[in-house]
């Protein structure tokens, strides 16, 4: 096991360098840079060149990449934001926390609902309940996250206009009077603001995971060893949950690794529409401002998360599935 893990870890290193270099090149391909916005300055015609030189943006692309890489590796220093002159790490960590605060409960809820529904649908294949759930999940797959979020906001605003208060808020993380609330009140207030985005994020991946679970469960239930178990006269319960579910759940474990970065992206549109100050809104505004170091820091974090996530889910799979050799 240990040599396998080490081999996998060593394999990650070239991928990391290549992925960050690729990201750097793509960001650099965009026309102009951060300094371009100072091009038209009647007071100081040299402003653009001066700012570009002072930020080191006049260096060749590869040189800048190597400088950046050296700082990241030796000092864990991701540079500073060109727009806010803030340390990128300080800028990103709270955003990351906000994103996770939305994602973790949403993900847990999704799995708690999706897995039982998937199992139910598979065990009662083509029943009325299964058909209804299948139609619903097809609908769920066809609605883009951001549109679902938009509909939520629209209903919420409509309710506010008619009644003068919010049923569930759909903008931001806290109320305006947040700082005046007691600690308990603050906790309840942030929980209240979490409801709407959490529901949308959970709904958006619910359909997908339900379908995977149902399909995988059906696949396993069609296997010969299940028929053998039935022929032996084992209890249906024991067949379903001991023989079938244990194998069907493997796929869910395999998808877990890529989940977090995928979810950060998937929830990103919801964050944008519902003004949740997570990573994606920061990424978007940095794209528009060409804030290289913020972009690179977010991309690097996500790349590392994805690589480690995939590794962990492979390891988990190897641990629980004795058929996998490494």
């Amino acid at each position: 096991m240990i040599p396998y893990i080490l081999r996998r870890l060593v394999n990650l290193i070239p991928t990391f360098f290549l992925a960050t270099l690729l990201a750097w090149i793509v960001i650099d391909l965009a026309p102009g840079d951060f300094a371009s916005q100072f091009a038209i300055n009647p007071l100081d015609p040299n402003a653009e060149a001066r700012i570009r030189a002072s930020l080191g943006l006049d260096q060749p692309m590869l040189v800048r990449y190597l400088y950046w890489l050296r700082n990241v590796i030796t000092d864990f220093d991701f540079g500073f934001s060109l727009t806010s002159r803030n340390n990128v790490t300080n800028l990103i960590l709270p955003r990351m926390e906000n994103s996770l605060r939305l994602l973790l409960p949403a993900t847990i809820i999704t799995y708690l609902i999706a897995i039982p529904i998937g199992i139910y649908s598979a065990l009662n294949k083509y029943s009325f309940g299964d058909r209804v759930l299948t139609v619903l999940s097809l609908f769920g797959l066809a609605i883009p996250n951001f549109f679902l979020a938009l509909i939520f906001v629209a209903f919420s605003v409509q309710f506010f206009q008619q009644n003068g208060f919010f049923l569930i808020p759909t903008g931001g993380m806290t109320s305006q009077n947040y700082s005046q609330l007691s600690p308990g009140g603050q906790f309840l207030d942030s929980l209240w603001h979490l409801i709407a985005p959490m529901i949308v994020v959970a709904l958006s991946s619910l359909a997908f995971i339900t379908r995977i679970m149902r399909g995988e469960m059906l696949e396993v239930l069609g296997q010969d060893y299940i028929r053998t178990a039935r022929a032996k006269g084992l209890a249906r319960r024991s067949i379903n949950y001991k023989h079938a579910l244990r194998n069907a759940i493997l796929v869910i474990v395999a998808t877990l690794g890529g989940l977090l970065p995928g979810l950060i992206g998937g929830a990103g549109t919801v964050e944008y529409v519902m003004r949740w100050p997570g990573l994606t809104p920061l990424f978007l505004s940095s794209v528009f401002a060409q804030d290289v170091y913020v972009l690179m820091a977010i991309l690097t974090i996500l790349v590392v998360l994805l690589m480690i996530g995939n590794l962990l889910s492979d390891l988990a799979l190897a641990l629980i599935d004795p058929r996998i050799r490494y």
Partner: peptide, 25 residues
Amino acid sequence: RFVEALSAIPDLFLLFTLSAIFYPL
């Protein structure tokens, strides 16, 4: 290796970065 590096960057963020190449033009 190239495919692996490309897939290591989450899709949505790769998309945003790629689009930034042409949208201001």
